[in-house]
Design a binder for these strands. Structure first.
Lengths: 220, 220
DNA sequence: CCCGCCATTTTGAGTAGTCAAAATAATTTC
DNA sequence: GAAATTATTTTGACTACTCAAAATGGCGGG
């Protein structure tokens, strides 16, 4: 049975792999886990010895098939627990990430399956992030973001890829929830500013970085 | 924040204190936690240094007020989680102890309060064990058991103080659930045997030890 | 009163995970 | 192409928890 620590290394590796697409640099992992780089090196070598990752020294790490399978299991627990906390316990979506961080390591597969059924086998969590299936399929679609979508066209928000409670509260405050409609009216690369327009709302300015965390699809 | 290990030491100490009423011998704790006695000695000394227990060398341990408060918190989580697993997720009561053993260390007070409200603030868990209140009150009543109650009088089962899945399945098989009615028709101390009669059932023989784990109150 | 038994404590050692800081590579800069 | 910067790895040390096995203390039986 993998330890809590191992599960966290694998989970973050999976999350970082989505972005960096290939080898994850040690520094990125170190930052994500909030441990010093030396610790990551040590730990990654032991994960490699267990066949969960491959380590290219001085270059980075990536998951093996076995490591990915484990990581998907943890991610599934995390996102199903989040969904439960919001839908059944009526918690605020900005608070559930921290809670799920703990519970994902304590919940058994048996309990998870019951939870899944209770929730009606949801395919995304409250942030719009896809929930891996029991078999470890992750229907990860490539979406545009508010930083990259066409100007002036109506879009629907599908996913907020940022977990910090502050950001999520800010997003909600301005109606930027999964499912909402909007339109990017202006994008100023030089200033790093994006202006979005919500139906019946005033224009809202976002940093390019923030806009890049909000995934959208064409409306209608 | 106390570690999982510390929480387990304190919880088992609380449970054992109910039985031994006073100082818990090191050996009992060692057996309950499934670690060698030397480990318990070391650990208890460090708990004592933190003011969570008092250690009388060569005699035993007991909780301080601070230790008891923490232990009651853990027990509350354990029993509320068990109740949730049975009532909401419809799990079998013989399986939930093992699950709760894990979850009790991962669930926050916030989530716990919501769970408590969702369940309607129950006062006992599915085994009939009392759930400590949020303030740490444990309405522990003194009950008779099938090994000590008057002969021939109708009684109602209120609580099964044994968590092993095998025992619980056996109990259920014969209708020995909290809430059920029964009558002790015979008690043979020499043979260590108790005979109980359920309404519309055949007489059932139990060991004295098993009978002592089933708490009852006078029916009606 | 001493012997032996049992529970407990001590001692020495191991595992998992972590940090601080020095050593080493790789990459960029000039 | 040497020097400087930055990422990574090594080394040595620490914490929390555990076990095995030897030492100790208390107690009942003779």
């Amino acid at each position: 049975m993998p330890s809590v620590t191992v599960e966290n290394y694998l989970k973050h590796l999976l999350l970082l792999a989505e972005e960096t697409d290939g080898l994850v640099p040690m520094g990125a992992l170190s930052a994500a886990l909030a441990v010093v780089p030396g610790t990551v090196t040590t730990m990654v070598k032991s994960l490699a010895a267990d066949g969960l990752v491959v380590h290219r020294p001085r270059q980075g790490v990536k998951l093996t098939a076995a490591g990915r399978r484990l990581a998907l299991g943890v991610l599934r627990k995390h996102r199903l627990v989040e969904t439960f906390l919001v839908q059944v316990l009526k918690m605020h979506w900005s608070a559930v990430n921290a809670e799920a961080e703990q519970l994902e390591h304590a919940i058994s597969d048996t309990v998870l399956d019951r939870l899944d059924a209770l929730l009606g086998h949801p395919s995304t969590d409250p942030h719009g992030d896809p929930i891996p299936s029991r078999l470890g399929k992750l229907h990860s679609q490539v979406y545009a973001t508010l930083a990259t979508c066409p100007l002036a066209r109506p879009v629907r928000l599908v996913r907020i890829t940022e977990q910090s409670a502050e950001f999520l509260q800010f997003a909600e405050q301005h109606g930027l929830l999964p499912g909402a409609s909007a339109r990017v009216t202006d994008r100023n690369l030089a200033a790093g500013l994006v202006t979005v327009q919500r139906p019946r709302g005033r224009p809202l300015a976002l940093s390019l970085a923030a806009a890049g965390r909000i995934l959208v699809e064409p409306a209608r």
